[in-house]
């Protein structure tokens, strides 16, 4: 009984929570939030999904081991950090920005990409830790 409700709920909850987490991520530059909290929310979404549908299903949904999100995030962050060196010969991690702001998100710049990297790493880390512990419990 419990599982059916949960399962149905989580099917809707997963995309909703993910969207919310991306919102938190993007708005971080203006309001409380950012990559870290956003990442945590996204992982909670996956954890809930795993709780409802079983670990295997969630893993299948992700296709790749969540661990790969860590180097991916780090890479995104590194590239964001390196971009000023290549683009304008400015120091590592200098913010460079597109001229025009986008609606909802605001200004787009290397800092945002960096935050996306953080977001990805946090998801990767929390999912790896939780999955590993659950598997070996």
């Amino acid at each position: 009984m419990k599982t059916i409700i949960l399962r149905t709920a989580s099917d809707y909850l997963l995309p909703l929570l993910l969207l919310f987490s991306i919102f938190i991520l993007l708005r971080g530059h203006y309001l409380p939030g950012g990559g870290f909290v956003g990442g945590l929310i996204a992982s909670i979404a996956f954890v809930l999904h795993a709780f409802a549908n079983g670990l295997e299903n969630t893993k299948n949904l992700l296709r790749l081991h969540p661990g790969y999100l860590m180097p991916l995030g780090l890479l995104v962050a590194t590239l964001a950090g390196l971009s000023p060196i290549f683009v304008e010969n400015l120091p590592f991690m200098t913010g460079i920005w597109f001229q025009e702001p986008l609606p909802v998100i605001g200004m787009i710049g290397s800092a945002l990409f960096f935050d996306i990297g953080v977001y990805l790493v946090v998801i990767g880390v929390s999912l790896t830790i939780i999955f590993t512990i659950t598997e070996s419990a």
Partner: peptide, 26 residues
């Protein structure tokens, strides 16, 4: 270009701290 100063510090002024923080997590 950010209004949440804490977040601006985290991703820009002191971005390297955050960078290494996620490395620690990894």
């Amino acid at each position: 270009k950010g209004k949440n100063v804490v977040n601006v510090i985290l991703v820009d002024f002191r971005g390297i701290d955050t960078f290494m923080e996620i490395a620690v997590l990894t």
